[in-house]
Design a protein around this nucleic acid. Structure first.
Lengths: 153, 153
DNA sequence: CCTTGACCTTCCAGTCACTGGAAGCTCTAT
DNA sequence: ATAGAGCTTCCAGTGACTGGAAGGTCAAGG
């Protein structure tokens, strides 16, 4: 199988496949007399495995470990679970971070009139220094009243 | 103010400040006779603004636009809101993507015994090709029964 | 037989937002 | 005088590729 064929079937681009080979994630492909890479069904399975792992957000280094475990018949499921749990926890941290950003932004967007006037609570928030932002957590809408000053030059 | 001082006060590292200058995000700092950069309070306010915008997940290019809007007294709050809404939507997409990964992983982790045996539903999932994975969505636990085969060599 | 176009090859550059480190100059305190 | 901290510039590296250039190969059609 040529690289284009295996790429299409596995959903991994030819560029990515060559890249994986160059970093030693997959073993170097066999070559035909004309120099073209030649892939077997087993190679395609490996690429599918990688594709799926990547789509679950595992890093290349994680995938390297997962491939090792997959290949190793004397692995323990505990090792696989530990690796996966670690990744899951990292995902949770990332989701929490983004969700916190999302919340702050939604809050800001909600209070911006979005009209032709320049007053904007979003810019007010960005401009405000951190200590003030913490104190500004009191209830009521007055904290969104615009009090822009000229930007520093 | 030296770069180290303004870095500490703004929470932006000296490296990052120099980087921002090099890409034209902030105007070149004044220099003292000895060649050291010299920062004003206004410069620090700009750095604070950038710091806060970055912490809300805005890209550098977004921050560039936000700074322009901030500096522009004839801006409209509609423009600021549009930019922010665009970013908010991107965040939502990212969160949805990560949450979907998280769900799949949590499902997998839950069904992995995590003991000394090699059977592992996580590896089974990674190994399974996509068409099969879709079909395997039937209820019941049998779909997690391990049926590892030797890894391709 | 020749051409066209789709493949394939390698290698280099660029992405994003910095950080690390080297080599060298300046300042402050002892 | 010297030590150590802080400043300068510049180059390289990060992650996981993608884009593109320059050139070889293959299959089909005229």
């Amino acid at each position: 199988m040529n690289i284009g064929t295996v790429a299409e079937k596995s959903g991994v681009s030819p560029k990515a496949i060559r890249y994986y080979e160059s970093i030693g994630l997959v073993r170097p492909a066999d070559r035909r007399p004309n120099g073209y890479r030649d892939y077997s069904l087993a190679d395609m399975q490996t690429l599918n495995f990688i594709k799926r792992a990547r789509s679950l957000g595992f890093s290349i280094e994680d995938v390297r470990e997962l491939l090792d475990l997959w290949q190793d018949t004397s692995r323990t499921s505990a090792a696989v679970k530990a690796l996966t749990t670690r990744h899951l926890e990292a995902l949770d941290r990332k989701i929490a971070e983004l969700t916190s950003m999302r919340k702050a932004l939604a809050d800001l967007v909600e209070h911006c009139h979005g009209d032709a006037r320049p007053d904007c609570p979003i810019l007010d928030d960005l401009e405000r220094d951190e200590a003030l932002r913490r104190h500004a957590a009191s209830p009521g809408e007055h904290r969104y009243r615009s009090h822009n000053r000229k930007a520093p030059t």
